[in-house]
């Protein structure tokens, strides 16, 4: 038994080592890409590149090249990797974030154009104490995601839908969901999750579904 345990531990250590190594390699990849990405930038004053962004209610100082998209800045400069880069050309919605409470595909937004605007990402959706947004919780309960890659984008679109229309019809829900692509065919479960969250809200069993704007 003790031998087996030590074997298991060493195997786990080995796997952890592989994962750490892989993470380092992929981080290097990002750094390398980021540097070539920045390397193209024309010479402009540091003052022009250093900007303040309002992300999830916090003021973040960040160094942003002129040609950087919001998706890039969020993921690789601010460490907010919830918004995903799927197609990176405005066709899939995996990078959806809210700008002034309205969903945008962040891969097709220049970061410099959202200065002085309010950016909300999936990381800003749950309450400060970690309590999930009611629709997030409903998505968990109803198995609204499979691989999960598209889920953060969907959550932002759904948040917008319910903020503007607390009791949407079936067509309105399906129309809103059409902004994002899910390749695991999870649309029906997502629809059920939204429905469940709304029903729970109407029965008064869940608190505040839609936060006051």
């Amino acid at each position: 038994m003790p031998e087996e345990t030590s074997k298991a531990v060493s195997r786990r250590r080995f796997i952890m080592g592989v994962i750490a190594g892989g993470a380092a390699v992929s981080a290097a990849g990002y750094l390398f890409r980021a540097s070539t990405h920045h390397g193209n930038a024309p010479l402009i004053g540091a003052g022009e590149r250093l900007i303040t962004l309002n992300v999830n209610g916090r003021q973040r100082r960040v160094d942003v090249a002129r040609q950087e998209t919001l998706a890039w800045t969020l993921r690789y400069n601010l460490g907010l990797t919830g918004a995903k880069l799927g197609c990176d050309r405005g066709e899939c919605g995996a990078c959806t974030v809210l700008i002034d409470d309205v969903p945008h595909y962040s891969c097709s937004v220049l970061t410099h154009t959202v200065r002085s605007r309010k950016v909300t990402t999936i990381e800003g959706l749950a309450a400060a104490d970690g309590t999930l947004h009611p629709v997030q919780q409903a998505m968990v309960d109803q198995h609204g995601s499979q691989c999960g890659f598209c889920t953060p984008g969907f959550m932002m679109t759904i948040k917008w839908l319910l903020a503007n229309n607390p009791d949407p019809s079936e067509d309105e829900i399906r129309d809103a969901l059409s902004s994002n692509l899910c390749r695991c065919t999870g649309y029906s479960q997502m629809y059920q999750a939204i429905r469940a969250a709304i029903d729970a809200e109407q029965k008064g069993t869940k608190q505040e579904l839609v936060e006051a704007k």
Partner: peptide, 11 residues
């Protein structure tokens, strides 16, 4: 994919 570099004008 990254964007090619440019100067941004904001009138």
């Amino acid at each position: 994919m990254s964007l090619p570099s440019f100067q941004l004008l904001r009138p």
